[in-house]
């Protein structure tokens, strides 16, 4: 087992562990902090996947911006109290939980059995540039310029929308 494999399995384990904590923690603050951890581990995995740009963005946007937002909301609304004891799970919760596990099983089976990929990407040329800011930026500002601009519009709308929705009276 090579170093990089070891690193990967370590990271993967850490990611999953913190992800489970996210959904298992009773206190939302704990969930949020676990989520930050998950994002950071994922960023590392992205880097290992040669997606350096995305890894950086992950840290900046998710672990930075979005998580701050979450924490602010939790604190603003003082949601940290644990409230009443958890009621027994409803039927749809049981069904949903089982379905989620079953989907996981299905996906695992599928990925396990049909893992052969189309043999296109094993070439080593161009690896040096792959995933760099230069390459991604180049693509982003040429062929994908329109979607990129559309996304900026989306963010603008989201911003305005958030203000409108959250303010009690405009």
């Amino acid at each position: 087992m090579s170093t990089s494999q070891l690193v990967f399995f370590g990271l993967a384990f850490a990611t999953l562990f913190s992800a489970v904590l996210v959904i298992a923690a009773r206190n939302p603050i704990n969930s949020a902090m676990s989520l930050v951890a998950t994002f950071l581990f994922l960023a590392a995995i992205y880097a290992q996947l040669l997606a350096h740009t995305i890894a950086v963005l992950q840290v900046l946007v998710y672990a930075g911006a979005i998580m701050v937002l979450f924490l602010f909301v939790i604190m603003l609304l003082s949601l940290t109290h644990l409230g009443d004891p958890t009621p027994p799970p409803a039927l749809h919760q049981v069904v949903g939980g089982v379905a989620a596990v079953a989907v996981l099983a299905g996906l695992v089976v599928a990925i396990w059995r049909w893992h052969e990929m189309a043999p296109v990407g094993r070439a080593r040329e161009g690896l040096l540039r792959f995933g760099t800011l230069e390459q991604v930026g180049g693509l982003l500002y040429t062929r994908w310029l329109l979607p990129f601009e559309a996304v900026s519009l989306l963010l603008l709308v989201a911003m305005v929308g958030a203000v409108v929705v959250a303010k009690p009276r405009i």
């Binding site: 998710y62 937002l69 990407g121 161009g126 991604v136 693509l139 963010l155 929705v165 959250a166």
Partner: peptide
Amino acid sequence: RERLDATGHLAALFVIAVAAAEAAIGLA
């Protein structure tokens, strides 16, 4: 990475953007 096609990175980028928008509105 498998296909050495950076388009996937762009998709991820857009997903991040959408996630940001969604989080903003959702939290509001």
